[in-house]
Structure formats: C-alpha cells, structure tokens
Design a protein around this nucleic acid. Structure first.
Length: 287
DNA sequence: AAAAAATTCAACCGCTTATTT
DNA sequence: AAAATAAGCGGTTGAATTTTT
C-alpha cells in the first residue's frame, strides 16, 4: 500500500504519510501495554518508524477507542456553532464538549461547512433538497385530494337532486363552472395570495430547517463575533454568545446521511478485542 | 462517459505551553 | 532556575473521493 502514492516517505529516519494497518496495530499494542503518553518511546519499544508526535496524533485523532465514528449529528452541529460563537477557533475547547469528537474533526467540519468567504454549495444543495422534498409532498397531497374529490363526486351523482349537504351536514360548495364573474375574480385573487404566502412559507420553513443557510447567505449573521474570532486567532477576548444566537436542533445538512449512533456513542470504559473493528476488518485482530 | 471542479479529512508543520531533568 | 523534552494546539496541505458539468 505505502509508497504507491508517493507517500510513506522517510525523513530523518521517520516514516511519514498515511498509516498502515500494521503500524496501527503496533501503536495500539503499545498503548495497551504502556498507556497513553511517552510517545517518543513508541519507536524505541515497538520498532515503529514514527515520531512521537506522529504517534500521538494518530492515537488521538484516529485510534482512540472512545472516538465516535460517523457523521456529525445535527445536535453536535448546533453545539459546534454555539461554542464557536463563544470561543472562536479554540477547537480543543470546543471538542471537550463533544465526547468522542476530536478538535481536528471539529475544525475540519467548521471549515468545510461554515467558513465565511466562499458561498458554500452545501447551502444551495440543502435548499434544493428541501424544495424537492416539499414538491414531492405537495404532489402527493394533491393526488390524495384528487382521489378524494373523485369519490365525493361519485357519491353526489348517486344522490337525489336538491340535496346540497354532505354526510356531515355541511353545505357543499358550488361547482366553479357555475360561478359568477365576481366570484371567480375573488377566487383568482385568493389563489394569488396563497401562492405568495406559500413562497414566504417556503423561505421561513427553509430558514427554520437550515439556520446556517440563511445566516451564511446574508451578511446579517446571527453570530456576531464568529468571523472576528476566527480572524483574530487565539488572542485575548472572545465574542460572547448573542442571546438570540440560538440554533434549531434540526437541520437539513445531514438529513439524508445522518447515521444512527452505531457505536452507542459516548466514551466507553475499558477496551477489548471489539474496540478496534477497523483493525479486525483487515485481519489484524487486536488481542 | 469522461473531464473538471469541489469537497473531505488524515496528516503534517510550526509554534506555544507544560513537564521533567 | 534553566535547559531539554514532551505534549498540545491551530493552521495548512494534498491525496482520495464525490459531485457537477
């Protein structure tokens, strides 16, 4: 595997680039025997040609058994957004509030989804997805309505003339063909109004479902200091969370790829041979 | 179907902070 | 107390993958 892509290079005796399953196994075995820390001894004790820094990173960001694997959930996304508004780019601080997530993961997620500057296509996609879903719902509804009306008309035709009440006793509306010009004008006006309202509702609903979309697409973002925080780096004061800067718990970002918490979530206590399935997958079961 | 563009994310780097000698 | 070493952090890179054209 290694070397295939120009990676797996060596510099100053240390291997670099993607880790192999064998290397992972060595590192996991080391941590199992000696615990976390003293990363520079890994190379001495296991023969692994990786710097302590590289070993630590691999363990913290990938091998730790208490890591959550899977997409960031809408709930986690909300936490990230709120805490980023509060702390700025203090990724490790934010990560402490998200068990099983690494600072690296959160940093990557923020940058790919919410970094200002370039209008994200995610937003447009989310919008398109939302509108498509709504269209589908509408046409389904329309179909049901038509079927219902068809049945009602069928019943009416079978009724004796002069019966203008339905089963519940409500007055049945006049057929549109027999409307006066004034009535049809009023109806046309009503339809136009409903179309307008529908469009507004679309926007409102979309904003509710995708708070960040409306935020990122307009300059009046709810996060008053988020941009400043990310630009001022780790210096001094941090923007306070605006009292109005709350986020909906549902969003469409992950609507079609939210993965149920397969691992059961949260940190797990001790680890056993089932703690490293990704090693087992490669025939490198951990004892 | 293929090329181009966009996105994702693991891993690196340099710097700072904490701990050990 | 100072120097050396280790750990931690945030920014950046680039290969792999996915999506769009």
């Amino acid at each position: 595997m290694e070397g295939q892509f120009g990676w797996g290079r060596e510099e100053g005796g240390w291997r670099k680039g993607p880790w192999t399953a064998q290397e992972d196994k060595l590192l996991v075995e080391y941590v199992r025997q000696h615990g976390e820390g003293r990363w520079n001894s890994v190379a001495k004790l296991t023969g692994l040609k990786r710097s302590g820094k590289s070993c630590r990173l691999r363990w913290v960001n990938y091998l730790r058994p208490d890591l959550k694997r899977g997409k960031i959930t809408p709930q986690e996304e909300s936490v990230i957004l709120e805490l980023h508004a509060l702390w700025g780019n203090r990724w490790s601080t934010i990560a402490r509030s998200l068990p099983g997530r690494t600072d690296n993961e959160i940093k990557n997620y923020w940058r790919t989804h919410f970094k200002q500057g370039k209008p994200s296509k995610n937003i447009e996609r989310a919008r398109a997805r939302f509108l498509k879903q709504r269209r589908e719902m509408q046409s389904q509804l329309l179909l049901q309505l038509q079927q219902q009306q068809g049945q009602e008309q069928h019943h009416q035709q079978q009724r004796p003339a002069g019966d203008d009440h339905d089963d519940d006793g409500a007055v049945i509306r006049e057929a549109s063909s027999s409307s006066s010009p004034a009535v049809s004008l009023a109806r046309q006006h009503e339809e136009d109004l409903q179309t307008m309202l529908q469009q507004d509702m679309d926007d409102l609903l979309f904003q509710f479902c995708c708070p960040m979309a409306s935020c990122a697409s307009s300059s009046s973002c709810l996060l008053p200091g988020a941009t400043a925080a990310s630009e001022e780096g780790s210096s001094g004061d941090h923007p306070q969370l605006d009292s109005g800067a709350t986020w909906g718990w549902g969003s469409l970002w992950n609507l079609d790829d939210v993965v149920d918490d397969v691992d059961g979530g949260g940190a797990c206590g001790g680890w056993d041979d089932t703690s490293f399935p990704w090693l087992q997958d490669q025939g490198l079961a951990f004892y």
